[in-house]
Simulated scan of single mutants.
Amino acid sequence: MADKYDLTPQSVLTDLRAGEILLIDVREPAEFANERIHGALLHPLSTFEPKALPTDGNRRIVFQCGSGKRSRMALNNFMKETGVEAAHLAGGIAAWKSARQPCIRLDPATGAIVDKGDY
């Protein structure tokens, strides 16, 4: 069920471009290395510490994962522990790619970084 904490890929991209959000990728390091959204910072859910994230009020924190499940868990945990409102990318990087938004990935054949567009 969608709510005010579920953001669309387009709204996340718009806010990233405007410098209004801090995008936190809660996937594991190998997932992040293979494919990621420009500007995302890695804070894996397996070692997630909500109070370690900056909450200065300048940028809204938005969580992101592969499908939206882990990012929603991180969001709920973060808001419970810090009392700070945040959001997450509904559908994760899968929704992001379906919406044809730019991402960085590794070419599995060569190991080279492939930049899929600027944001």
Rank of each mutant, 00 (worst) to 15 (best):
D6F: 01
L7K: 12
T8W: 04
V12L: 09
L13Q: 06
L16M: 09
G19L: 02
G19N: 07
L22E: 12
D25L: 00
D25M: 01
V26G: 00
A30C: 03
A30I: 13
A30H: 15
E31I: 03
L42W: 03
H43S: 13
F48H: 08
E49Y: 09
E49F: 05
P50S: 11
P54W: 00
T55E: 05
T55L: 12
D56E: 12
D56V: 13
G57L: 00
R59K: 15
R59A: 07
R60T: 14
I61E: 08
C65H: 01
G66F: 08
S67C: 08
S71K: 01
R72L: 15
M73S: 14
L75I: 02
T82M: 03
G83W: 15
G83Y: 12
V84F: 11
A87E: 10
A87R: 15
A87W: 10
A87N: 13
L89N: 01
G91R: 13
G92L: 15
G92Q: 11
G92S: 13
I93S: 04
A94P: 04
W96V: 01
P102D: 06
C103Q: 07
D107I: 06
D107S: 04
P108K: 07
G111A: 01
A112T: 02
I113F: 11
V114Q: 01
V114E: 05
G117K: 09
